[in-house]
């Protein structure tokens, strides 16, 4: 202690700087300090814009005008919920979700039943079947746009072999919706298959053996053994795909851009149009929050099911 007395004043200031570092470096502060930059970035680029847009949804504001935002209360929400066009978009989205998710479940389940068996080249085929879900939306979108093209597309050519005329699937509302459904199902059926396959391979062989000994029919074996084992996973796949498909933007925008007319305009595409083509920024924000609300409801359901499944597995 006595040696401190001889130190020059400059050294004591340096000591206090080091003191701050030491204070920050204390074990209880080190962790929060290390994550702080990430939290800050997240707040700036993610949370703040989110809250900002939520705030905007209560104002009358256009991003391409200089005018100051005017507070409108719940007007945007009221207008949207009473607007037939918005409900139409929700119905369109619902149709695409129902068609695509239904198709994904059927194809995914079928593929899973197939791949639960052992056969030559199974692993290689499994890899190939999984490829679609690993591609980017943009490449899948462009691929299907070309596939559906009336003058260049493979589909038109194949149909042409029978009818002698080019086939424009995207020209009719029903055709366009099925085109979207097919593209989305093509891309995401493998995902459903993966989940269901996980359930199928977890069924112990001895249950099937017991059912054989008990002389149960194929359908009865499926109902009492297979289905209970994959039921939970199918529900998860259903919800997960519903949430994802509900938000569909990329595929629709790339393949049909919402057309013909507004026949395939999903709520996500409509929100995009409102916000970035019509620059009705605050209305678009409100619509985005309506979509978010639906997604949150579905997600809670999803999490509830996941938790229940964990609880079942634990018991």
């Amino acid at each position: 202690m006595t040696s401190d007395m001889h130190l020059p004043p400059a050294f004591t200031t340096q000591r206090s700087a080091r003191g701050i570092l030491q204070w920050l470096n204390a074990p209880e502060r080190r962790g929060p300090l290390l994550v702080a930059p990430a939290i800050l970035t997240l707040f700036l680029v993610n949370i703040l814009p989110l809250l900002w847009s939520f705030g905007l949804s209560f104002f009358n504001y256009r991003a391409n005008r200089q005018a100051a935002p005017r507070f409108d209360g719940l007007d945007n929400y009221g207008d949207l919920l009473t607007d037939d066009r918005v409900w139409e978009r929700f119905v369109t989205t619902g149709m695409i979700v129902a068609g695509s998710v239904g198709l994904q479940l059927i194809i995914g389940f079928g593929l899973a039943l197939l791949f639960a068996k052992k056969f030559p080249l199974r692993r290689i085929l499994l890899m190939l079947v999984l490829t679609p879900m690993m591609l980017s939306f943009v490449s899948v979108g462009i691929f299907f746009k070309l596939f559906y093209d009336p003058s260049l597309g493979l589909l038109s050519w194949i149909v042409g072999q029978f009818t002698g005329e080019p086939f424009a699937i995207l020209a009719t509302p029903a055709g366009a919706i099925s085109a979207i459904v097919i593209a989305d199902a093509w891309m995401w059926s493998p995902f459903v298959m993966l989940l269901v396959l996980a359930g199928l391979v977890s069924v112990p062989d001895y249950l099937y053996e017991a059912a054989h000994v008990d002389r149960a029919s194929g359908w009865r074996r499926f109902r009492t053994i297979t289905l209970p084992y994959v039921k939970g996973l199918i529900l998860l796949a259903l919800l997960f795909r519903t949430i994802e498909t509900f938000k569909t933007f990329d595929l629709v925008y790339l393949i049909t851009a919402g057309g013909p007319g507004s026949a395939t305009e999903t709520v996500a595409v409509y929100a995009y149009r409102l916000g970035f083509q019509n620059f009705r920024t605050s209305e678009a924000s409100a619509l985005a929050y309506l979509i978010l609300f639906v997604v949150i409801v579905l997600t809670s359901l999803y999490l509830y099911l996941v938790n229940r499944r964990d609880a079942e597995a634990a018991s």
Binding site: P204, Y206, A210, V213, R215, A216, T224, L227, P228
Partner: peptide
């Protein structure tokens, strides 16, 4: 033949009663 398995092989989704009468369907 009737067989009892080492790991019991009870059908997890059926009740005890349903498990017991399962083989009688045939």
């Amino acid at each position: 033949v009737a067989m009892a398995f080492q790991f019991y092989a009870l059908y997890p989704d059926l009740t005890v009663g349903e498990n017991l009468i399962f083989p009688l369907a045939a």
